[in-house]
Design a protein around this nucleic acid. Structure first.
Length: 295
DNA sequence: AGGCGTTTCCGCCAAC
DNA sequence: CAGTTGGCGGAAACGC
């Protein structure tokens, strides 16, 4: 079996989605042959329907089997080895380019585990914390996948809209499954996922570090450490970002005062809000509004 | 993993 | 009056 050769091919956005095409593509692979390592400019959701194989990821090689679900981000080269009856679905997508509203999806702990935490800590956890669907869940997900595929192949008017809708349902289903998954390795990611989910869901409310520590079932010290390791900033900084993003939306309604936007976003002091806004955005809230009006 | 002590900076009041 | 700045107590962040 051919190993990944010296050169790693890069698959570009245009190759998969076409120029100006829908940044969502489903590829069903029957009896997946060994494939050389490759990388791509987008995210990839892999759902293993049946069979076995070895997934070759940057962190190492790990056996995969039916029900396994994992996400790869663009810069992670990967391939498959020693495949046996491997039957899987690749969904290639760019969530930002798709422009789908995330809505309350981000309040699901499993969403953060699946998309951010597990891919990030895959190496450390030796792939132990990946999602493995039970047969019933796999059946449900396979049904959704089929609908995406049907729309994609039909090319009937409206197929893009419908395909994206089914894809969104797939994301919710997987995030819900991941919110419930048990297992020692997944447990720590799960706790952090709950903390992030709570921040995303309740950022308008007053949230203390003690609250977050309770939700994550860890000490304040451990929480701040693992949060920074995973996300790259402190819990409070993350919260402030969420509130500012919300405030930016609110500011576009020019009937609202800056003060009102600040309060609606969860800030309790408009002075403090303006200060944080300048620090993060590089300009004041009123400048943001002026820019929006002129741009 | 988590407690402790020190430093940083959040969050509130007030001035302008 | 809306919005930006200064001061201060206490919470958060972080090294050990």
């Amino acid at each position: 079996l051919a190993r990944a050769s010296t050169t790693i091919s890069t698959i570009t956005r245009a190759q998969v989605f076409g120029l100006g095409g829908l940044p969502l593509a489903l590829r069903r692979v029957h009896r997946h042959a060994t494939t050389p390592a490759h990388r791509h400019e987008f995210s990839e959701l892999v759902i293993v329907l049946r069979g076995t194989g070895i997934h070759q990821a940057p962190a190492g090689q790990y056996p995969i089997g039916a029900g396994d679900v994992f996400v790869l981000h663009g810069d992670q080269a990967h391939g498959y080895l020693d495949t046996e009856d491997l039957d899987l679905v690749n969904i290639l997508f760019d969530l930002d380019a798709l422009g789908v509203p995330r809505g309350d999806l981000t309040s699901l702990p499993g969403y953060h585990v699946l998309f951010t935490l597990e891919p990030r800590f895959r190496e450390r956890d030796h792939f132990e914390s990946r999602l493995r669907l039970d047969p019933a869940a796999l059946h449900r997900v396979a049904g959704l996948v089929e609908r995406i595929e049907t729309e994609q192949e039909s090319h009937r008017p409206g197929w893009q809209f419908a395909a994206v809708a089914h894809f969104m349902l797939t994301l919710v289903e997987l995030s819900r499954c991941y919110s419930q998954v048990q297992g020692s390795a997944a447990e720590s990611l799960q706790r952090l996922g709950r903390v992030i989910g709570h921040l995303e869901h309740s950022y308008r409310d007053t949230i203390s570090l003690d609250d977050l520590a309770r939700i994550g079932c860890m000490s304040r010290r451990t929480l701040t450490r693992v949060f920074r390791d995973a996300i790259g900033c402190s819990p409070l900084q993350y919260l402030i970002r969420l509130r500012i993003n919300r405030a930016i939306e609110m500011l576009q309604d020019r009937r609202l005062r800056v003060k009102d936007a600040a309060f609606a976003a969860g800030f309790h002091d408009s002075n403090y809000f303006a200060r944080q806004f300048c620090k993060v955005m590089g300009h004041s809230p009123t400048d943001a509004r002026r820019r929006h009006r002129s741009g």
